[in-house]
């Protein structure tokens, strides 16, 4: 099997799930004839027809609302946000309607909301967002943010089969930049499980999405200096896999969290709090953060590069942490 891109993995996941289960439908802006702004749904209309691949008006609240209504009749809609930045147009529909239904009145909403997110592609302030933490703060949702084609496919398939509303973030920097050979046979990846991408003993780097690759690059360079960093890919942000994190800390006693999202209110702060509560005695140094700046994502390449964490910044922070 030839290696496939992240994009192709997403497409395969949707195709296979729609093929497997006629309850799975896709709706969003330009997902039909055009095949999606990034061509993630190319070919789905031809295969599954107009009723299952629905081009919608530019109405994010309507897309989410309708997907929710469909899920109440047992369908498993995938709602695409053309860019994940626009998900906030449907914020109320997601946080108040979709997320609270099961807790309040026992109405499961088996639906997936997915779309391209993240920066590094010169998309400017409204096409580069990482809005995951608005939703990590919302009980009732599951939040997935994968970093490899294998995970993207397996987790998206698991998300479609989950009985809860799942937000699935696809880092668009990765769409065409990484390739991976995928198993010929069918597989899913469990939601809520982190994975150790690189074992190490001197410190733990926790990351996800595009920054996972940045962290791996930094770890490579750290190894040349004799610092063995353990890199963990969180994959799911909600519910967070505390167990894998705590196990690693027991071994390394130092933690660096790397994410592209802004620093204030980013998941690094939450992880730091969890470590203080549950692993204080295991820590030999402060929990450090390398994150995006507390600003919107700027447009000019020089500015965006300054905004984004880099392998150099991760390397510097890790080296500082290793001194403890």
């Amino acid at each position: 099997m030839a290696p496939v891109t992240f994009l192709e993995a997403i497409k395969q996941a949707m195709f296979e799930e729609m093929e497997r289960d006629p309850a799975v439908v896709l709706l969003g802006e330009d997902v039909g004839v055009y095949g999606g702004a990034f061509k993630t749904s190319e070919g789905l209309l031809e295969r599954f027809g107009w009723e299952r691949v629905i081009d919608t008006p530019i109405s994010e609240s309507a897309i989410i609302g309708a997907a929710c209504g469909m899920s109440y009749l047992g369908l498993r809609p995938i709602a695409e946000m053309q860019f994940i930045d626009f998900i906030v147009c449907a914020f109320n529909q997601i946080t108040n309607f979709v997320a609270k239904g099961h807790y309040l009145w026992g109405a499961p909403a088996p639906m997936v909301i997915r779309g391209p997110s993240g920066g590094g592609v010169r998309g400017g302030p409204f096409h580069s967002a990482n809005p995951e933490m608005y939703f990590v703060h919302t009980p009732g949702l599951k939040i997935i943010y994968p970093s490899t084609p294998y995970d993207a496919k397996g987790l998206l398939k698991a998300a479609v089969r989950d009985n809860n509303p799942v937000l699935f973030f696809e880092h668009k920097f990765l769409y065409r930049r990484i390739k991976e050979e995928l198993p010929a046979e069918e597989y899913t990846v469990p939601i809520g499980k982190a994975v150790v991408r690189r074992p190490g003993k001197h410190l733990t780097i926790l990351s996800y999405a595009a920054m996972m690759h940045t962290s791996l690059e930094a770890a490579e360079n750290l190894a040349k200096e004799g610092i063995e960093a353990e890199v963990i890919d969180l994959r799911t942000l909600l519910p967070l896999d505390e167990e894998t994190i705590l196990q690693s800390v027991k071994k390394t006693n130092r933690v660096l969290v790397v994410h592209e999202d802004t620093k204030t209110g980013g998941i690094a702060g939450e992880i730091a709090a969890i470590l203080c509560e549950k692993a204080f005695g295991d820590l030999d140094g402060p929990v450090l953060r390398v994150t995006g700046l507390d600003t919107p994502v700027p447009y000019a390449p020089t500015l965006e590069d300054a905004f984004l964490p880099s392998a150099q910044k991760v390397f510097a922070a890790a080296r500082e942490l290793a001194r403890y």
């Binding site: 439908v25 009723e51 209504g69 469909m70 108040n96 309607f97």
Partner: peptide
């Protein structure tokens, strides 16, 4: 019966989705 929430109008796209799902399922 679908439960309302206090934010007005949110039921309209939800019930549109219910209607579409019903049509799709042949109900």
């Amino acid at each position: 019966i679908v439960s309302p929430i206090s934010m007005l109008g949110d039921l309209i796209p939800v019930m549109a989705g219910v209607a579409l799902a019903g049509r799709y399922l042949g109900q």
